[in-house]
Design a protein around this nucleic acid. Structure first.
Lengths: 149, 149
DNA sequence: GCTTGACCTTCCCATCACTGGAAGGTCGAC
DNA sequence: GTCGACCTTCCAGTGATGGGAAGGTCAAGC
């Protein structure tokens, strides 16, 4: 089948299929005489695998690892589990950081009158020098923020 | 002061300061005879504002809005509040999506023996056709939301 | 005065996972 | 044979940064 049909059947766009081929995530597709790529239902199966993994937030390089394990009949489930657990841990870490941000910001929003006057605790906080250092504080959201939903 | 000092004082890298200038987020810095950019403490103050907003996860375009309001003495706090609340809502939406992912994946991980055998419910689920449609399920986690940490 | 090293300048490239578009070839139906 | 839908490759852009090259400037020490 042509790439468009494979795209529809798998839920991965034609653009993406070509991109995945180019980057080596998937093997090069066979070609018809016309030069059109030709896909089997096994290919679609693989693409669907990829889409589902993306839907779970795996990065392309993680998916590369998962695909190799998927194809490897002598794989050890511990290898799969390790990749997945690592990803869950990453997700949870990011969730925590975002919760903190959201919490801090929500408390500022709650303190803001939101009327026609210019006074605003949100801007005041942004302007304020809690931390004059300019330390490389990226990510380590300020200690003492009220966050923590 | 030179850009390096302003960078240290504000916590925004010199690279980023130039980038923000280039994209118009901040006005063009004055120059010394040498051609070096020259910053005042007011500039550092502004850069610190930007860094704090980034730390709260605001995008550059949101910060552009906030900076304009910050400079606008006749601003209405409701405008600031709207931007911030919108951002909190975005954050919460992304948090929910990630929680869902993490939860789904964690339950799969929990079902995986993680031993030397090849059988693995994680791969099985990825392989499985819950949803043969190929529907555009690519939800709510917008690109670039990965981890600003 | 000269060298050295730290700093500055601009410019280009890479990231990550895509999306968009242009220019042109192929196919199937009418 | 013509039309529209599809396919091909290639090139560029996204957002917020980091990295590095090639070259100019400055201040200190000799």
């Amino acid at each position: 089948m042509n790439i468009g049909k494979a795209a529809k059947a798998s839920g991965v766009s034609a653009k993406m299929i070509r991109y995945y081929e180019q980057t080596g995530l998937i093997p090069k597709a066979g070609r018809k005489d016309s030069g059109y790529r030709d896909y089997s239902s096994a290919d679609v199966h693989m693409l669907r695998f990829i889409r589902k993994a993306r839907d779970l937030g795996f990065s392309v390089s993680e998916i590369d690892g998962l695909l190799n394990l998927w194809r490897d009949r002598s794989r050890q489930s511990s290898d799969v589990k390790r990749i997945a657990q690592k990803h869950v841990d990453d997700l949870n870490e990011r969730i925590e950081a975002m919760k903190q941000m959201a919490g801090t910001l929500q408390s500022l929003v709650d303190c803001c009158a939101g009327d026609a006057r210019p006074d605003c605790p949100i801007l005041a906080d942004l302007e304020d020098d809690h931390d004059g250092s300019g330390a490389p504080a990226r990510a380590t959201l300020r200690p003492g923020s009220k966050g923590r939903s």
